[in-house]
Design a protein around this nucleic acid. Structure first.
Lengths: 225, 225
DNA sequence: AAGCATCTGTTGTTTTTACAACGAAAGGAA
DNA sequence: TTCCTTTCGTTGTAAAAACAACAGATGCTT
């Protein structure tokens, strides 16, 4: 287990804990390590989940089986990422997604009940763990809300502007780098890449903004309204 | 405070607690009641928030100020509803939305720190409160994910089918009632109401489904694929 | 440097959506 | 019942997006 401490130190769930603390905490949590081969199914949609998963090594993907039979990829997770945390903590613990190993990988499972139940020995880091878990859920919440804010807009132009203004706000600067390439941005905003590229060009031509690759700059608007 | 116990009993945060327990818990949480007049601002975007809000009486609305200056209504909350819970629990506690009183109203504020910190007297209901809070955050998370699943689809038809199949799944029945009227459904799916109505009619004509008002029935598809 | 794969912007065509305007149905209140 | 309001479906038109195909730019590997 020792070997994965560098990874575990980066997991938000364990933020603010030293290796020694982590060791005692993991024992107290009765964490379970499992190994999967490439392509193996880790969690299956429809099952009840009571464990939070942590990728220790390799890559896993989270996807949804549509009614049509199609697979929608929701996320690719590398070492250090959590999965199934919302479903484990929710009141209805039925998993609506599936999780599969993209490469050979190792996963750590932690029983949700162990997280929310302060241990009999009243271990000092448990309180911290609970705060962290809430932070993880709340942060995800905010991330999802933001995304909805953008993709709720009817036109590609509005989606782009909503996203870009948010980025400017986060950077506290009208000039900033976005964390996506074009295809990723299009996927995030749920629009066609080429159509989005065209819209970006129009915005640039109209002087609303300028960009080069992932570097953007929003121009101040002096509209006559 | 007594007078609001009927409302508080319905708040998910206090699920599973009796009135007597609630009374001692509220004292332990040092909850603060405040009164607002119609139109008064309750929380302002940009401020740090450390309190979870609970509507005790009246109605409040949560909205976002867009970069364009427009207001986007995010929610109208009646008595018994929580607000700002994700922001209070998140790691960055800056509020991206504003909250305003739609009618004269009363709001109860609870300090987030008091929720996650088990009290010195180690009150028995605190553990329950923490589980509830996580449940609230996780449930919201799932709700948001579902919505994204639907509105991510490119066409109105796909959005509708994604939503309706989900509803059928939740009801475990191909025949079900949806919790929206047409305008609400259109708002939820982020499309134009009339265009959506037209698409529903086409789907019915093609035999994919049938409906009357909020009652829907999905027909089994025997596609030749 | 050469070759290759990926990323990005452009254009034309087809499909879909938004928008606006209207009439019918449903439901409530007087 | 009658009136009035809200909800819902329909249609035509204008606007926007998806889609497909391509070319230039960029970056990496050999």
């Amino acid at each position: 287990m020792q070997e994965f401490f560098p990874v575990l130190r980066t997991v938000p769930l364990f933020a603010g804990m030293e290796e020694a603390e982590l060791a005692s905490l993991l024992a107290c949590l009765n964490a379970l390590k499992r190994t999967y081969e490439k392509g193996e199914r880790i969690l299956r949609a429809g099952e009840p989940v009571r464990n939070v998963g942590i990728v220790l090594d390799g890559r896993v993907q989270v996807y949804r089986e549509e009614f049509s039979g199609a697979r929608t990829l929701l996320a690719q997770l590398a070492a250090g990422n959590l999965f199934a945390e919302a479903f484990a903590c929710a009141n209805v613990k039925i998993l609506p997604v599936s999780v599969e190993a993209v490469t050979d990988c190792k996963v750590l499972f932690i029983d949700y009940k162990r997280i929310v139940t302060t241990c009999p020995s009243n271990c000092a880091f448990h309180a911290r763990l609970i705060r962290n878990m809430m932070g993880v859920l709340a942060d995800k919440n905010i991330l999802l809300s933001r995304k909805i804010q953008h993709i709720s807009k009817r036109s590609t132009r509005e989606k782009l502007l909503s996203f870009l203004h948010e980025q400017a706000g986060l950077h506290r600067n009208a000039q900033f780098l976005i964390p996506f390439n074009r295809q990723e941005l299009a996927d995030y905003l749920c629009v066609d890449r080429s159509a989005m590229s065209a819209e970006l060009s129009r915005l640039q031509q109209e002087g609303v903004l300028s960009f080069h690759r992932s570097a953007f700059k929003l121009h101040v608007q002096e509209d006559g309204q």
